[in-house]
Design a protein around this nucleic acid. Structure first.
Length: 839
RNA sequence: GGGCGCUUAACUCAGUUGGUUAGAGUGUCUGCCUUACAAGCAGGAUGUCAUAGGUUCGAGUCCUAUAGCGCCCACCA
């Protein structure tokens, strides 16, 4: 027999190992293919609540689909996470007293793989604790051999197609990690800065131009000053020269649209090697590009005496210097947006550098075209997120994919002198040197939906499971990942990578703040599991908010989920205690209450299935919760207690419980496994069982309504009794021929003992049921107030209804049943009012 | 600057194509140890659905404007 109380520690112990051992998560012969690939977590650390949420959603879908008979697989895997992992490995090495950049590459990589193996193990343990139905035989890692082949194939193909090129551009440079970044990896933050107004003297003149800049230290890279050719103030200066302060050399004044006459002084210094706009200006005017900052953010030899100083120190010193030389006009403090590295947090340096790029325009256009067709597009849930992807596709520009790191897919390009070779394997012959850089992590993640299935080989898995059925991820990952999977998938397979894309939000703390290390408000899902169990956490995570919205972590709600499981546990305990001898289900001689619960069950199954299919787990949660607690426990079980000897009752108890367990299984796999295995009749494991199906022959609408009325009447009866403080010695007078036996049973009233008709009369009316309670007590003022309140409420309700029904427009245009219902209710209210007034 | 979302009970949130007296959990009040469950049972109370207009027989839901909060994108040398 089950323990009296639900104990998640005992219930969850050992189950996962059993599932895996029995191969329940592996491919299932015969079913229609259904596939999800996990968003591979970074091997940098441990999973947080966001991962728990993300993976539970997928687990629910997979378990549901398996129960529906699909050959549903969920491909697990992890991401090497280039920058993030390299930073962590470097930090660890530094702690060990090793200077990471002084190691040779191969040796460093051995440390990195050790790290990877250690953390991958952690993540496996966490997946297990969460109970995820992952198909481990298909597990992949973004840096494994197969995926590396896919990456090289893609690189080479795009290169041959002219969609990958190498070029010198201004890119976002992270001086801390010393690598290039893509635009997506730059986060703009509002910071305090200043406009430094500097004098640029005209050649052979005492006059100067006032040039304002936020980054004075870049003046060592200035190769021109620009004014707008239409700017009356300055257009005559075009073609003349100014003397670059500090450096003392002459640079030209050029006319260029980029200079906005309305902005600042209308004069802008041009630093082609350190600003994307200036780079363009430089191209238009054939200006020299002078780099004056080193990759590590210090000034280089072009900065003269400032060489070697950090860029921010150099700025300070340079401003001092300008002040001394009377070259500084003013310093105007401003707030402005400055790019920061997503990973290291340092200010990004726009930097001239030779990098590899993906030419985005043709790839993005193809996606935009494809999204116009509902049969080929990626369907976002909720739909509004589709706009985010489309907008990105519209404005995207070339993707800088090379990273100056060691941890990643090494770029399959080799150089010999001026020659460049790109191929899937190294070229034959001597003297070829491979590119030192690796690819952006997202370059390999972009191939994940198909590379994990063995692509570019035409494998069985690829043929069966591509496109994937759904991808589940947070909205914050759309630009990095979803967009890129979509264009790569389309380009290389001709198809969308997945039919649906289910988007969820971010986890926040109780106050609505983002969970972060610096705030210290993070919650470790493993701690929650220890306290409340994975089932409670999972139910909370997936049923507490609408799709696509953020979720506040609230321990009280996890507790409420635990209570629900405990309720389920005890209901099961009751059922199991009473059906031990049941060997077959027998639905002969069903009573009204049996028909009622079967009807409600089937309505629930129907609606739950529909909502499961549209990923509306929040509604599913509410529906099952209310069915279990209100219908099954509060009502059906209470009535079933009177007929526990009936086989029909036992059968219904067993059947309804079985269906409940199955519907809850995707949400709470552990406890449902435990309870299901205690049923007198069951499959090998609930994971292998069939999802409940709506069965019309179990729907009895007439009995459903009749029994609902009984339940409602009981409620009214209890309410009248409680509100009027009616004690035990009351009398009952029944006013019609209806059958009150069930009602009296449940209320534990023996009519023979309550036949004294004296004292004050209290009417109890609901639909066809109508009786009076008589009770001797002094009628207090309070009682009169209560009665009067009821009367006036009824009166105003009647008045409202009358007015509505007198409205010709309403009667003419509203649906007929509604109008009928109004009439019926009005009549009932009028009768009730008459009775109340009698009291 | 462009776009998106949110504003509903004390708190956290649902609210399907408009259907007329707006729901849940938690909290709160009253009464109960009724042998499945006191982590429970029975019964209550609590809302100008942000504001102002509009469409409609009917608006939390649709339209317009406003306010507050949040997010995304772009960008200011």
């Amino acid at each position: 027999m089950l323990e009296k109380k639900y104990n998640h520690l005992e219930v969850e112990n050992g189950k996962y190992e059993n599932w895996v051992k029995n191969g329940y998560f592996e491919e299932k012969e015969g079913g229609k293919p259904y596939a999800i690939v996990i968003p591979p977590p970074n091997v940098t650390g441990k999973l947080h609540l966001g991962h728990a949420w993300n993976t539970t959603l997928q687990d629910i879908i997979i378990r549901f689909k398996r129960m529906q008979g699909f050959n549903a697989i969920w491909v697990p895997g992890m991401d090497h996470a280039g920058i993030a992992t390299q930073a962590k490995v470097d930090a660890k090495l530094k702690d060990m007293g090793i200077k990471p950049r002084e190691l040779d590459r191969a040796k460093w990589l051995r440390y990195a793989w050790d790290w990877k193996n250690e953390y991958a193990e952690n993540i496996h343990k966490q997946w297990a604790k969460l109970g995820l139905a992952l198909c481990y035989s298909k597990e992949r890692f973004t840096l494994d051999e197969g995926l590396n082949r896919a990456v090289n194939h893609v690189f080479k193909t795009l290169f041959d197609e002219g969609l990958i090129y190498r070029g010198e551009r201004i890119i976002n440079w992270d001086p801390a990690q010393m690598t290039a970044l893509s635009n997506e990896e730059v986060i703009y933050k509002e910071v305090k800065g200043a406009f430094y107004h500097i004098k640029y003297y005209l050649e052979n003149s005492d006059e100067y131009l006032e040039v304002a800049t936020t980054r004075p230290e870049t003046l060592f890279g200035d190769t021109a000053v620009a004014v707008n050719p239409d700017d009356e103030r300055y257009k005559d200066l075009i073609g003349k020269n100014v003397i670059l302060p500090v450096v003392g050399k002459l640079i030209p004044i050029v006319g260029d649209e980029h200079a906005d006459p309305e902005f600042g002084t209308g004069i802008v210094k041009i630093t082609p090697a350190h600003d994307p706009n200036d780079f363009e200006v430089g191209n238009r005017h054939n200006l020299e590009r002078i780099v004056c900052i080193n990759p590590d953010g210090t000034m280089n030899e072009n900065a003269g005496e400032f060489a070697g100083l950090d860029r921010f120190v150099a700025r300070e010193k340079l401003v001092e210097y300008l002040k001394e030389k009377d070259l500084l006009i003013s310093v105007e403090e401003i707030m402005h947006n400055v790019g920061h590295s997503e990973r290291s947090g340092v200010m990004v340096e726009p930097y001239l550098s030779k990098q590899w790029f993906v030419k985005m325009r043709p790839l993005a256009d193809r996606v935009l075209e494809n999204q116009k067709n509902k049969d080929t597009k990626v369907n976002f849930v909720p739909t509004r997120y589709e706009k985010i992807m489309n907008h990105w596709m519209e404005i995207t520009y070339d993707w800088c994919i090379s990273r100056q790191l060691w941890w990643g897919h090494r770029i399959p390009a080799w150089y010999k002198g001026d020659e460049v070779y790109v191929g899937e394997v190294a070229p034959v012959g001597d003297g070829w040197v491979q590119d030192n850089d690796v690819l952006d992590t997202w370059f390999s993640s972009a191939l994940w939906p198909f590379s994990t299935l063995g692509w570019p080989e035409e494998t069985e898995d690829f043929k069966k499971f591509y496109p994937n059925n759904v991808l589940v991820t947070g909205y914050d990952i759309i630009p990095f990942w979803v967009n890129r999977m979509t264009f790569q998938g389309l380009h290389f397979t001709g198809k969308r990578p997945f039919k649906d894309c289910l988007i969820h939000g971010l986890i926040r703390d109780k106050q609505g703040r983002k969970m972060s290390k610096s705030l210290g408000n993070g919650v470790d899902p493993m701690d929650v599991i220890d306290t409340y169990g994975a089932d409670a956490l999972r139910f909370f995570l997936t049923t507490s908010s609408a799709a696509g919205t953020d979720l506040r972590y609230d321990e009280e709600k996890v507790k409420a989920s635990w209570n629900f499981i405990n309720k389920l546990w005890n209901a099961s305990r009751f059922v199991l205690m009473n059906i031990e001898d049941l060997d077959t289900l027998n639905f002969d001689n069903l009573k009204m209450e049996d028909k009622w619960i079967l009807t409600s069950l089937n309505n629930t199954i129907k609606s739950v299935t529909k909502n499961m299919e549209q990923y509306d787990f929040n509604n599913v949660g509410t529906e099952i919760y209310s069915f279990v607690w209100n219908d099954f426990c509060d009502n059906y079980i209470e009535f079933a207690k009177f007929s526990l000897e009936n086989k029909a009752t036992k059968s219904v108890l067993c059947y309804v419980l079985t269906c409940i367990l199955k519907m809850l299984h995707p949400f709470m796999p552990y406890v449902t496994d435990e309870l299901y295995s205690n049923l007198p009749m069951h499959e090998e494991n609930i994971i292998l069982s069939e999802y409940p199906k709506y069965n019309k022959s179990e729907v009895f609408n007439k009995e459903y309504e009749e029994f609902t009325n009984i339940i409602e009447f009981i409620k009214v009866f209890r309410n009248v009794k409680l509100e009027n403080k009616i004690g035990k010695d009351f009398g009952i007078k029944i006013n019609n021929e209806e059958d009150y036996s069930l009602i009296m049973k449940l209320l534990r009233i023996n009519l023979d003992k309550h036949n004294e008709i004296k004292g004050t009369k209290y009417s109890v009316i609901y639909k066809n049921y109508n009786l009076d309670i008589y009770y001797e007590k002094e009628v207090t003022e309070e009682d009169m107030m209560l009665l009067n309140k009821q009367i006036s409420e009824l009166e105003s309700s009647i008045e409202r209804r009358k007015k509505l029904l007198n409205n010709e427009n309403y009667v003419a245009k509203a649906p007929k049943e509604l109008v009928e219902k109004e009439r019926f209710t009005l009549k009932a209210e009028e009768e009730k009012l008459a009775k109340l007034k009698n009291e």
